[in-house]
Design a binder for these strands. Structure first.
Lengths: 183, 183
DNA sequence: ATCTTCATGTAATAAGTTACATGATTAA
DNA sequence: TTAATCATGTAACTTATTACATGAAGAT
């Protein structure tokens, strides 16, 4: 079995206490969506594979009449996760933004529409930020012992800072364009 | 035919003079890879579809004994591109970084290894930056009339600034961790 | 009562990458 | 003459998303 980022994401989240498929999806939603999005349809098959190959151990843990499976890391799982964290091979980061792609071609539009395009992007970023800030995972992490949850909080802060940086960057360009309009 | 970002990317690049499949791939490599990566295997089928549906017009334009097809925008293609640029619906930006994902779980490592992980990320970012800076498209764009190629240059600058921002951000965390080591 | 959340999964589809195959032209 | 670049495409595979199906528990 080839372990991919999604595998390690699951191992890592199980390790910090997201022990069911549903809980993993929830934690990923607010904790890692910014840096590595996942969908539920990836989680369940991947959990099954990780168990099959001995990285996770499964237990039935029903909540009343509601079925639930919980997972915990095996030694192999712990080793695999740490090996990955220490491994020197890292693919370059990928940033995919339809808004930025549109901006790339904005020369095709009159200046007013260029400004609109940039303004819409800022609006969208403000939405994303609000939605990230609402993350329970991060709020929870802050309350837990700092030694165990320092990096999730840091990465959350990076997300915020990155959005602020981009927001300011866009606003600078907007201002430049607006000044040219006034002339 | 449902037009996707890749469709508009192709229309946009044809519009600014990347008229063959190969040229589109080259231009995307240095111009838009940062914000919207593409592979050659996407370009050719998509070009064919765009022609089939009347957004592009194809001509045979062999270079000596070497076959080449060149494309130009039809009015429908121009309209579709501009419609997209003006459309208010924009999916949120997606940032996918295996390095950041690893960092999210770095609490599992001793401090020395945490610092290593961050340092490796910076090294990788420096590589990415060098490789982006080598882009012929951006260098070419700078020499062309600023009114036609302003936004590609701007987006290139955003890529650079974004990497610098992240580099500084990581270094700050590294310094914090190193200070704790010394104590 | 009814809506939301918790909970697990599958099927179908879409999107994207890697590898392969072929061959001409140009620069070192 | 050998390597790099120009040039077009396909096949196989991997990855990821959307939609569907089902149902219990808890909150309003």
């Amino acid at each position: 079995m080839k372990l991919r980022p999604i595998s390690f994401l699951i191992l890592g989240l199980v390790r910090v206490g997201a022990t069911s498929g549903y809980a993993i999806k929830k934690a990923a939603e607010t904790g890692t969506k910014m840096i590595w999005p996942v969908s539920l349809a990836q989680v369940y098959p991947e959990l099954a594979k990780l168990e099959e190959h001995g990285y996770l151990e499964r237990s039935d843990d029903p909540q009343g009449g509601r079925a639930r499976s919980t997972y915990e890391l095996t030694q192999a799982g712990e080793d695999a996760l740490k090996g990955w964290l220490r491994s020197p091979i890292e693919p370059p980061p990928q940033f995919r933004s339809e808004g930025m792609l549109r901006s790339f071609f904005a020369d095709a539009l009159p200046k007013e529409d260029q400004i609109d395009l940039l303004r819409r992007q800022r609006e969208r970023l403000v939405e994303v930020k609000a939605w990230l800030g609402a993350g329970e995972f991060r709020r929870a992490a802050k309350e837990i012992d700092a030694g165990l949850m320092r990096f999730p909080v840091l990465m959350g802060a990076y997300g915020d800072d990155f959005i602020d940086f981009t927001l300011n960057w866009i606003r600078r360009v907007e201002t430049e364009l607006e000044d040219e309009l006034d002339k």
